[in-house]
Design a protein around this nucleic acid. Sequence first.
RNA 1: GUAUCUAUAGCUCAGCUGGAUAGAGCAACGCCCUUCUAAGGCGUGGGUCCGGGGUUCGAAUCCCUGUAGGUACGCCA
Length: 566
Amino acid sequence: MKDYKLVLAEILANVVEMKKEDIEDLIEVPTNKDMGDFSFPCFRFAKILKKSPNAIAAEFAKKIERPDFIEKIENVNAYINFYLDKEELIKTVLDKVFDEKENYAIEQKKDKGNIVIDYSSPNIAKPFHIGHLRSTVIGNSLYRIFEAIGYKCISVNHLGDWGTQFGKLIVAYRLYSNKEEVENKGIEELLRIYVKFHEEAKKDPSLENLARENFTKMEQGDEEALSLWKWFKEISLKEFERVYDILGIKFDSLNGEAFYNDKMDAVIKELDAKNLTKISEGAKVVEIEDMSPCLITKKDGSTLYATRDITAALYRQNMYNFQKCIYVTALAQNLHFAQFFKVIEKMGYKWAEDLVHVPFGMVSMENGSISTRNGNVLLLEELLTEAINKTKQIIKEKNPKLENKDKVAKEVGIGAIIFDDMYNNIIKDIHFSWEKVLNFDGETGPYVQYTYARANSVFCKSGMKIEDIDNNIDVSKITDELSMALIKEIGKFSDIIQEAAAKYEPSIIARYVVNLAKSFNKFYHENSILVDEPNLKKARLSLVVGAMYSIKNALWLLGIKAPKQM
RNA sequence: GUAUCUAUAGCUCAGCUGGAUAGAGCAACGCCCUUCUAAGGCGUGGGUCCGGGGUUCGAAUCCCUGUAGGUACGCCA
């Protein structure tokens, strides 16, 4: 919204002995709307002026020149409260909404520079389960949020397609499977033999050594090992793409860990040349103060996770010249990121400070933590299918005549899952519960989508075309509190996106869109929209359409569709 | 042991760049569809903001400390 705060600070600076920047910091938005749109607390002047805060506030309040956009200035105790002029406020918000229309609050220019976002990044040869969902939907949302404030984003799916696990898989394949089984059953068979490997390795630890040997062979370019690896990777990618399609997510780069195989040598040499490496217990490490050392190579010379991440960061900086490089991974990986960010800093690269780890909490199942090895997993597709089926059932009950039932059920069911994942601060752990995730009442994705569908429905019944709805309305027609509350909520959208970006927190968008939907539902409940009086009808329809643009775009920022009917 | 995250209503959580009576949703109970989609709206009950210090005119919010739980800590990713 227009920067009223700044203007108020300038006006206050004429009365209060303080820099306008400091005044601006002091001005706050009251928690209770009865106390105005902005308020200025005067407690801190008591000491200097040797008067009571209440007296000071009263004195200041008298001296302030009221600007046009302020309807009323009121002194309550130690506060000076400012009430925005309603007509001014309506005009300001609607001007912006109808100037930008379907792009409302979403910046179209991408001229602030590049941001690389590394997310999803599942491990090849393991099925896509609900544990992978978080990184995927959070990363996708951050991508859209940063694009919405004017950055060009590059999404990277840093596939876990390299590492000792492939040594394990190769061993497991040779011992427990064959070509036909893998071709027929795909990733399911790969999972089976992976689990089997871990069972057997408990009894016979030499299998682990065999696995390591096979990975080393891969790193040395052994053709047989590599062709198996390639085959496993293709099978996995097919499955992942199916899941990404359902979620509507695309990546700009699929450069996984293997992509950096031929680029790590140069980086290790650079580390050596900068005198950062040491040999410790046979491994090559970079020592870091106040942290355990970062391992660069194992004693057999093969590389590790950190080696590939350091190499990838250097490559990305070189390739994209990023303003930020964001990693969306579990909180449990905190140390790893702290370590390799520090290594890059030690290498003398100033852009190390542009590397950002966005950590999220763990998902656990009702019967303990998720473990692919133990088979305690819920496949994402199973969850999505369940949600879609539940939605179909509800549609059958509530809106049996709906067209495109399947399409809508898909959008709503998936919306429910995505929304649920991002409604709380991402740092919170999630204890998965069918009951919770399949509840579509209250503060949920379907609630917001339903609100949108209602708004669309009433708009359609008006018989107006979208072009007929604009900001050219009789502002005096809108007077009630609920309409004003809706306008204010719509007007907040841009600030909310800024906040979500600054905090790397999609839940801020999710919370916002729920408040917006609540606001709309109250407005809708109390005010008839399709009234006879044409000017009133037009004014109210402007609010309906403004709410629709806002809800649709906010859902889009979360990666959720807004069906027109449901 | 060290680091890190979390602790607010029965449950799940907002609020945490300090401010005016601590907010939602779920669950429970009650009301509102001959009127624009009831996946909705309204109402009722429900709180030592984990404990203890400190800073401040003012602390759920900042600092210190303790407690409880989660997670990570060299050749996995």
